[in-house]
Structures are given as structure tokens and as C-alpha cells.
Design a protein around this nucleic acid. Structure first.
Lengths: 218, 179
DNA sequence: GCTTTAAAAAGTAATCT
DNA sequence: AGATTACTTTGCAAAGC
């Protein structure tokens, strides 16, 4: 995808050698993650800035490329988790996260706060959930953010729990396990967020009725 | 507010034979292939002191500056009474103080992340907001509960100043909610 | 950059009963 | 479903790879 950038590079400069290797890795990751060309270009921009600031010295190109790609996804609010990028890059989540924080600190990147709503459709399609359930989950998340119960919690955990609750309320039979797998969190996390959302949004009665119906159907 | 950990460096300006220390104190941990420092643990003050062959040391785990100083002096005394001649008194410097505190109310974390310069809030990676303060030069981990961790200070006074300053900033911007 | 030491915050995770 | 233990983040020094 970045052939044009690569061919523009001149062979003699070591900077261009670095960029070509970096952009080749970026293309590979981007393909595996199925992200748009816009994301790739933003990631390439972030990496160039990092190169200019000398942040690449003594650090692995792979880690910074993976972190640049994560930063681009975050900046453009495209739901890709550190876990996703760790899986396709073969790098450790912890190392990519460290590079990402370095980029944000040193390049003064202003990142939008991760929004669980942006992950709803991706999790839903992986788990095979209806449009109605998704809309319900989004509404639950909107109410949750108003009363600030999401603060400090993993956005994917919030999104997964909202989808699970929406499934119960809309009588869509999906297990916590299926949604947990689609979201990349554990069932325990869904249960904990479920409790929090139920209590904070006053869903006790509605969920009790829906759960009872669910048991009967089963 | 309470001080949770104090890190101090020290030096007796004289080499120390770590193998000898290992022989005299069976309880110490020393794995030179893994790490050049010998771990000398004290029950009181409950601390762990790393001793290097250069005679330099690092004491961690103390709950106050004075406890850290007391711990280093105790370690030196123990070495002496075991038969190691340590001629000089240790030169001790406090390097870092870690404290925890509560602001007494909930913090609007997402809004704070937008308002506070040089702050990072990444709930996917860590539940707390990371705030780097210039003066006093400290780093504060701030949680939605209003509880926080302040680290990087070299004086207890800096911890108080940093926490009060942050509290003031949060109040001025309407980022606190009590009860 | 890594290695080791200590401690708190709140969240997530793995493992055992 | 709990309970436990362990890991994530921050700061810092030490000597050596």
C-alpha cells in the first residue's frame, strides 16, 4: 500500500532504509487487521514524527510501528485493541503499550478518550448479535457515561456487558462466554460490569423478569 | 495521607566483600549472575536494602524518611557486629517517596483528562489517570474514587504541596463531586 | 533497554474450591 | 460464584550486560 512512499525514498539515506522496513511491517499489520488506508497513512505520519524526534534510536522498529498503528486506530476511533495488535504482530501487549505511551508523551498526541460505543458493532458482528440489541447496548452505555460509572473500566468490558444486558432484555439468547470471547475479555469481567450497570441504571426488576423468561425458554 | 514507601541511596565509600556477607548472614539473597546487588532484609524497620560491592546501597520499603535512614544505619551496624569493618558512616540520600491519599470525593476522570495538561488516561491499560506535575516535580496516579498515589518526590513536603495543588486545580475546574 | 527492591491505587485475569 | 494470588501503572537508586 505504501509503495509510492517507498519508491519516493532514496536508497542511500539510512532514514529511508528505516522507513522502508517500517512501512513494510506497517502494511503487513494493516492487512491482518483489515484497517483502512486512512489509518495506515495516519500511522505512517506518527512513525515519521517519532523518527524525526529520534524516538526510534535504540528501540525496536516493530514495537514503534505497532504502537503507531494503535495510535492511529485510537486517533480515528477505529476499534482495535492492544490485544488485537499484539496477536497479529507477535509482540507483547505490554511492549506495544509502552511504545504507545512513549509516542503520546513525546509527540504530545491528543488522544480522544476510548469510547466503548465505538466497539459495539465489531463485537456484535463477531458474536452474531442483532441490530436491535446493538441499539439497546448503545443506549445503556450512553446512560452509563452520563453517571460516570465507566471511569477507570476497560472499554471492551463495558461494551461486552452492555451487549450482554441488551441480549437479556431483548430476549436474544447469547451466553456470557460467547460475548466474552468476541470482546476479548473474561466472563468474570462481564459479570462485574453487569452488576455495576444493573445497580447504577436501576435495571434490577427488568433484568429479573427477563432472566426468568430466559430460564423458562431454556 | 500516608507515606507508603521511601527509597534511599547510601554509600559507605568503601568496597564490601559480598561473599563474606553471604557467609555471615545466611538469610540474604545474592545471585550475582542475575543482579549485582545483595538483598539484605530487615524486620524493623521492615525494609529491603540492596548492597553492592562498591559499598553503595539502596534501601526500599521504609514508611518515612527517618525510617529509611534508621534502616541503613541498622544494616551498617549489623555488618560491623558480624565482623566486617565498615569505617565510615553511610552518606544517605532520599531518592523517592511514594504516598497514597484521598481527596474525599469522586473525580470526573474523563473531564480531568481533557483539562489536565500532560495527563494520560487509558482505561484499557490502567484504571488511573497519570498526571505529570512540573512543580513540585511529581507524578500522580489519580482514580475516579478520589484516591491517588503520588510518586517522584524527594521531600515529604513536596508530596503535600503536589496533592494540594492538584486538588486545587480539580476544584477550580469543577472536576470534583462530593457525597 | 534489561536485571532487583518496595508500596499504594483499581481493574483485569488465572486458578482453585 | 467467591476467594486468592498475580499482574498492569508511576517514581528512583545501585552495577553490569
Amino acid at each position: 500500500r505504501l509503495r509510492t512512499w517507498n519508491s519516493r525514498s532514496q536508497v542511500h539515506e539510512p532514514v529511508d532504509r528505516n522507513l522502508r522496513q517500517a512501512f513494510n511491517e506497517l502494511d503487513t499489520l494493516a492487512d491482518k487487521l483489515s484497517v483502512s488506508q486512512t489509518i495506515v497513512e495516519r500511522a505512517a505520519y506518527v512513525y515519521r514524527k517519532a523518527l524525526e524526534k529520534g524516538l526510534v534510536r535504540g528501540r525496536s522498529i516493530s514495537g514503534l510501528i505497532a504502537a503507531s498503528l494503535y495510535a492511529a486506530c485510537r486517533a480515528l476511533e477505529t476499534p482495535r485493541t492492544l490485544k488485537d495488535i499484539a496477536e497479529v504482530s507477535g509482540l507483547k501487549k505490554k511492549d506495544i503499550a509502552r511504545c504507545y505511551r512513549l509516542l503520546v508523551r513525546e509527540l504530545d498526541l491528543r488522544m480522544p478518550i476510548a469510547d466503548p460505543v465505538k466497539s459495539i458493532s465489531r463485537i456484535a458482528s463477531k458474536a452474531g448479535l442483532s441490530e436491535r440489541v446493538q441499539r439497546r447496548a448503545v443506549e445503556l452505555l450512553r446512560r452509563a457515561s452520563e453517571i460516570r460509572i465507566s471511569a477507570g473500566k476497560d472499554p471492551m468490558g463495558m461494551a461486552a456487558a452492555a451487549l450482554y444486558i441488551a441480549c437479556v432484555l431483548e430476549n436474544e439468547n447469547k451466553t456470557q462466554k460467547e460475548i466474552a470471547e468476541a470482546a476479548g475479555v473474561t466472563e468474570v469481567t462481564i459479570r462485574n460490569r453487569y452488576k455495576g450497570l444493573k445497580a447504577a441504571l436501576g435495571l434490577d426488576e427488568a433484568l429479573a423478569v427477563a432472566e426468568a423468561k430466559r430460564m423458562k425458554a431454556k | 495521607m500516608s507515606i507508603e514507601n521511601v527509597v534511599a541511596s547510601a554509600s559507605v565509600d568503601q568496597p564490601i566483600d559480598l561473599s563474606q556477607v553471604t557467609r555471615l548472614f545466611p538469610g540474604v539473597e545474592y545471585h550475582p549472575e542475575q543482579f549485582p546487588g545483595l538483598v539484605f532484609r530487615l524486620k524493623n524497620p521492615k525494609t529491603a536494602t540492596l548492597i553492592f560491592s562498591s559499598g553503595k546501597m539502596v534501601c526500599t520499603g521504609a514508611k518515612s524518611e527517618s525510617h529509611a535512614i534508621k534502616a541503613v544505619k541498622t544494616v551498617v551496624e549489623k555488618l560491623r557486629s558480624a565482623g566486617i569493618d565498615v569505617r565510615n558512616e553511610p552518606r544517605i540520600e532520599i531518592q523517592n517517596i511514594v504516598a497514597s491519599a484521598s481527596l474525599g470525593g469522586r473525580v470526573k476522570l474523563e473531564e480531568a483528562a481533557v483539562v489536565l495538561p500532560r495527563s494520560m488516561y487509558e482505561p484499557e491499560q490502567f484504571p488511573g489517570l497519570i498526571f505529570r506535575m512540573d512543580e513540585p516535580k511529581t507524578v500522580i496516579l489519580l482514580f475516579a474514587s478520589g484516591k491517588l498515589v503520588c510518586t517522584g518526590a524527594k521531600k515529604e513536603e513536596e508530596v503535600y504541596k503536589a496533592v494540594e495543588k492538584l486538588h486545587g486545580i480539580l476544584e477550580e475546574n469543577g472536576l470534583m463531586s462530593y457525597e
